[in-house]
């Protein structure tokens, strides 16, 4: 018997958002479901970046659903909050969140990496995508462009950016850190999804970023650091950021690559393996099923804990098995 691929449609997220529980508890549930959806769409596509999608998922969830929300009706409003990811290969996570917010349709999201579907890396033709990214190192420059234009046009709204840690090996990053501070684009908020692993190795082994906090500070930024899976902590820092007006803001969010599926978490993988093997590519059938059941179990635990009705689950198993895409880092 063929194993199933499951998915939660956007209607189910609305049910969670309506629950009478605090926003941190809601975020935990939303992120858990988004992780399951991310796993499923990557499996269907045959390729995609799981590790980085999972490490960034809690950041995406908090930013998009709660802190710097942009509703579907505001996507063309120049006063909207502008959020995007510079590393870009975490697109499956962002797409899952945008689907949950009813911005990307179910029809589209099931066509990840397919013609007329969703590109492997973000593309502005997709609703809710602000910038074409994925070629590393360009994000801070682009974000400061958005912010400069907002100020020039006297528009409201925040500009918030996710960067990777591996991409801090790109020179353009340091051009941008320097110019952002000099040009006093102080409202910019940059968050590093610091999951410590690039393609398959520790960042510190490939090219060490050394004292990151000190480094970024020396460029004239206000720098904070916290657990990137702790909604309360990151929220507190965002509140603080919005009060600081004399410097651009940088949050180093310590995350775990593959967070949410224990056997994909880098902290566990790197203890037994020499390389991290969940950066790119869809998991094979048995690993997929293992990961899916872990994520479904997590949702079930949360359902019992938060006492909400069972959510409707959709079977998205393709009729024919897709020929797997080639794994590209």
């Amino acid at each position: 018997m063929k194993k199933k691929i499951y998915f939660f449609e956007n209607s189910e997220f609305n049910k969670i958002l309506k629950l009478k529980i605090d926003k941190f508890a809601k975020a935990e549930i939303l992120a858990a479901i988004c992780r399951l959806n991310t796993l499923s769409i990557i499996k269907r596509a045959g390729s995609g970046h799981l590790g980085t999608s999972f490490s960034a998922m809690d950041l995406f969830t908090w930013i998009k659903f709660f802190r710097f929300k942009t509703a579907k009706a505001e996507l063309k409003n120049l006063n909207r909050n502008i959020f995007f990811s510079s590393k870009g290969h975490d697109a499956p996570a962002l797409y899952s969140v945008l689907h949950a917010m009813n911005i990307i349709s179910v029809k589209k999201i099931l066509k990840l990496r397919r013609l007329k579907g969703l590109d492997g890396h973000p593309d502005v033709s997709i609703p809710g995508i602000e910038a074409n990214t994925g070629s590393l190192g360009m994000g801070i420059s682009k974000a400061k462009g958005f912010l400069w234009a907002k100020k020039h046009l006297k528009k409201k709204g925040n500009v918030v950016l996710i960067v990777g840690d591996g991409e801090f090996q790109e020179g353009q990053i340091f051009e941008a850190l320097q110019t952002t501070a000099h040009q006093k684009l102080n409202d910019l908020i940059v968050i590093m999804d610091h999951n410590k692993i690039q393609s398959s190795q520790y960042v510190k082994k490939i090219i060490d970023l050394r004292n990151l906090k000190q480094k970024i500070k020396s460029f004239g930024w206000h720098v904070e650091r916290c657990d990137g899976h702790d909604f309360k902590k990151m929220d507190k820092i965002f509140s603080k950021f919005l009060k600081i007006k004399n410097k651009p803001k940088f949050l180093i969010a310590d995350t775990i690559k593959g967070k949410g599926v224990d056997f994909m978490e880098h902290t566990k993988v790197m203890k037994i393996n020499k390389r991290y093997n969940w950066h790119a590519g869809a998991p094979d059938e048995s690993n997929f099923q293992k990961a899916q059941s872990i994520l479904l179990k997590k949702i079930e635990i949360l359902q019992k804990k938060r006492k909400f009705n069972k959510l409707k689950i959709t079977d998205i198993t393709p009729k024919e098995v897709e020929k797997n895409n080639v794994e590209i880092h």
Binding site: G137, S141, K142, G145, W148, A149, E175, Q178
Partner: peptide
Amino acid sequence: GIAEQDMISMAGGIARMGL
């Protein structure tokens, strides 16, 4: 400043805002 890559990407962000 002498930061062409940064300048060009910044222009990209500005252009996305309609300028």
